[in-house]
Simulated assay, not measured.
Amino acid sequence: MRARTVLPVVVAALLALAGCGAESGSDEGAAGVLPAGSASPARPPASADASSDGAAEVAVAQALRFTATTVDGKPFQADVLAGKPTVLWFWAPWCPKCKAQAAETAKVAADYAGEANVVGVAGLGRNEAMKNFVADTGTGGFPQLSDEKGELWKRFEVTEQSRYVILDKNGKTVYEGVLPGGDGLAEKVDGLTG
């Protein structure tokens, strides 16, 4: 019940803070960097222009123009998700509903590897608790982002834990809501990949 009373206060504070900064639409100041072996975080997002080797790059939707850090402290840039359906799983480390979704979410991530992306977005807790949740639930097989400040939660307008935001291959939100125990997640992803 603590989340129901604390969450509105946290969301209101985040919205108030968002109004204090410039509305540039950039992600400057986000805690993001890139996976090992990638270009610098300052690189422009991929576009439909041809790359230097002649292959066309996938256009990056606005929804995937952010950087973050994983719960293990590794850099992450969301533009690597472009061109495939993406499941964003918003969870909190103390949430029993999130723990109940973990096994199905990990199964979908494994079953659809290469066809769709699954990314956990942990919030409403401290990073150490997030790391413990990932270890305890066996969800380390796909990226788990640490969003202690709630920046991604605010970006995707998530106001409670245990939510899925599913984007199609073009970055358009096609589903946002709760799937108890992760039931129905595989069918939603299958519909986007098949």
Rank of each mutant, 00 (worst) to 15 (best):
V58M: 10
A68E: 05
G114Q: 10
R126K: 12
D49K: 12
P75A: 13
A78P: 02
A110M: 07
G29N: 07
D53W: 14
F90T: 03
P35C: 11
E28K: 09
A113G: 09
E28L: 12
V118F: 09
V108D: 02
C98H: 07
A129M: 10
V58Y: 05
E57M: 11
A135Y: 05
Q77V: 06
F76W: 02
Q144C: 04
D53Q: 12
C98T: 14
P35D: 14
P45T: 07
D79A: 05
Y112F: 15
S51P: 02
D79E: 15
A55G: 10
G54H: 06
F76R: 02
A129H: 13
L64E: 00
A122Q: 05
A30F: 11
T69P: 02
W94R: 09
A55N: 14
G32P: 03
A116N: 08
A106T: 03
D53H: 11
V119L: 04
A50G: 14
A36I: 05
G141M: 07
N127S: 10
P35F: 15
G32V: 04
A82S: 13
G120I: 01
A30H: 10
L34R: 15
P35T: 11
A63G: 08
S146W: 00
E115F: 11
T105C: 06
A31S: 13
A39N: 11
G141D: 13
L88T: 02
D147H: 03
A48V: 11
K97M: 13
A122I: 01
D72A: 15
E148Q: 08
V108T: 06
G73Y: 14
V119D: 01
D53G: 02
G83H: 06
G120M: 01
A56G: 09
T105K: 03
A50K: 15
T86H: 02
P93W: 00
S52F: 12
Q77N: 14
V118Q: 04
A55K: 13
V108E: 00
P143N: 09
A46P: 04
N117R: 08
T70A: 11
G32Y: 01
S40Q: 08
V134K: 04
V33K: 10
A110N: 11
W91T: 03
L124W: 13
D49C: 08
V118R: 02
A30V: 07
A56V: 13
A135T: 09
K99Q: 13
G141F: 07
G123D: 13
F133W: 15
G73K: 12
A135L: 08
V134R: 01
V121P: 00
P45S: 07
L34H: 15
W89T: 00
G29E: 03
E104F: 07
P96Y: 08
G83P: 08
Y112A: 12
L145F: 06
A102E: 00
D136R: 06
L81T: 00
T70L: 13
P41A: 06
A122Y: 00
V33F: 13
E104Q: 14
Q144L: 01
Q62F: 12
A82R: 04
P75H: 00
V121M: 05
V80C: 10
C98I: 11
A110K: 12
P41L: 02
W94T: 11
A113M: 11
A50F: 05
T86L: 05
Q77D: 14
Q77M: 10
G123C: 14
A122H: 01
V119G: 02
A116S: 12
V87G: 00
D111I: 09
M130F: 06
K99G: 00
G29R: 08
S26Q: 10
G37Y: 03
S47E: 09
N117G: 04
A82Q: 01
